Amino acid sequence: MLNTSTLKNLIFDLGDVIIPIDLTAPIRNFAMLANLPEEQVRELWMQHDIVGQYETGLIDDDAFRTHVRTLLKNRASEPGSETVSSDQWADEVIDTAWNTILLDLPIERIERIKELKSGYRLFLLSNTSPIHIRKVNSVLTGMGQPPLEELFERVFYSYEVRLAKPSPEIYQHVLSEGGLVAEETAFFDDNAANIKAAAGLGIQAEHVQPPLTIIDYLKDL
């Protein structure tokens, strides 16, 4: 339960808070492209920690795509198959498969956040990648809405700050950069570990869980 009497700042996660996501979709689509079992692609993904490196800025867009091509190289084609070898995948093919994690964006969530700008300072904190952010902003502008960087006072992307949730350092970074007092700040995230870490710093952390959506958690603000 939020202490609204002291609340001045709202920090939002992006995936499954603002925009619904399907974490299994990229693996499923890369497996289909590479003509491989999903479990094999998932194991390769985890073994090489491509996502972790990309989302903390250790590799850029081009390096991410190169890693994907190399990881699935010589696995994406069989003799007589029409499957295109991974080293021939265009950037757009990889980006499209990677962006299948993003589902339809409910416009009412954006409108509610915009309504809150008059009463609170709004921030975004997301473990994410540049390809995903460009796609989300493209969807937003296509809906006639402002991009994330205009929707919020400040955005904090893991790949830019070189930190990721649930590390306490990333929350301390947001508090410091925003000049925020933890007890005056609410944080909304769908991940229990992220919520626990934020709460450990005194932030009012709200675990967004289905069947409720962020709209439900904001109804009393």
Score class of each variant (00 low, 15 high):
residue 126 S to C: 11
residue 120 Y to R: 13
residue 49 D to V: 02
residue 117 K to D: 04
residue 124 L to M: 10
residue 125 L to G: 04
residue 105 L to D: 05
residue 49 D to I: 00
residue 49 D to A: 06
residue 159 Y to S: 14
residue 43 E to T: 08
residue 33 L to S: 10
residue 157 Y to C: 14
residue 207 H to K: 12
residue 41 V to M: 05
residue 212 L to N: 14
residue 220 D to G: 11
residue 117 K to Y: 04
residue 52 G to S: 14
residue 26 P to R: 00
residue 62 D to S: 07
residue 95 D to N: 10
residue 143 M to A: 07
residue 11 I to T: 03
residue 161 V to I: 15
residue 115 E to M: 15
residue 8 K to M: 06
residue 59 I to M: 00
residue 76 A to S: 15
residue 6 T to H: 10
residue 149 E to M: 06
residue 167 S to P: 03
residue 111 E to H: 07
residue 181 V to C: 07
residue 149 E to G: 06
residue 96 T to A: 14
residue 206 E to N: 10
residue 138 S to G: 13
residue 123 F to Y: 15
residue 44 L to H: 11
residue 16 D to T: 14
residue 123 F to H: 08
residue 138 S to P: 00
residue 194 N to E: 11
residue 74 N to C: 06
residue 73 K to Y: 13
residue 71 L to R: 12
residue 18 I to E: 07
residue 38 E to T: 13
residue 158 S to G: 06
residue 74 N to A: 05
residue 100 T to G: 01
residue 137 N to A: 01
residue 156 F to P: 03
residue 44 L to D: 07
residue 204 Q to C: 10
residue 5 S to Y: 02
residue 219 K to P: 02
residue 160 E to W: 02
residue 189 D to W: 00
residue 12 F to G: 05
residue 192 A to C: 00
residue 71 L to A: 11
residue 53 Q to H: 10
residue 18 I to F: 09
residue 117 K to P: 03
residue 138 S to L: 01
residue 37 P to C: 09
residue 22 D to H: 10
residue 10 L to W: 09
residue 60 D to L: 08
residue 141 T to M: 12
residue 16 D to L: 08
residue 183 E to V: 14
residue 52 G to I: 12
residue 81 S to M: 04
residue 155 V to P: 08
residue 55 E to R: 06
residue 217 Y to Q: 07
residue 122 L to F: 04
residue 164 A to G: 01
residue 211 P to F: 00
residue 18 I to R: 01
residue 69 R to W: 07
residue 18 I to P: 05
residue 128 T to A: 02
residue 16 D to S: 15
residue 116 L to I: 12
residue 101 I to S: 01
residue 145 Q to S: 10
residue 202 G to C: 04
residue 136 V to L: 09
residue 80 G to Y: 04
residue 170 I to A: 04
residue 191 N to A: 15
residue 185 T to R: 02
residue 171 Y to N: 14
residue 198 A to I: 02
residue 94 I to K: 03
residue 100 T to F: 04
residue 36 L to T: 03
residue 59 I to R: 01
residue 116 L to K: 10
residue 111 E to S: 02
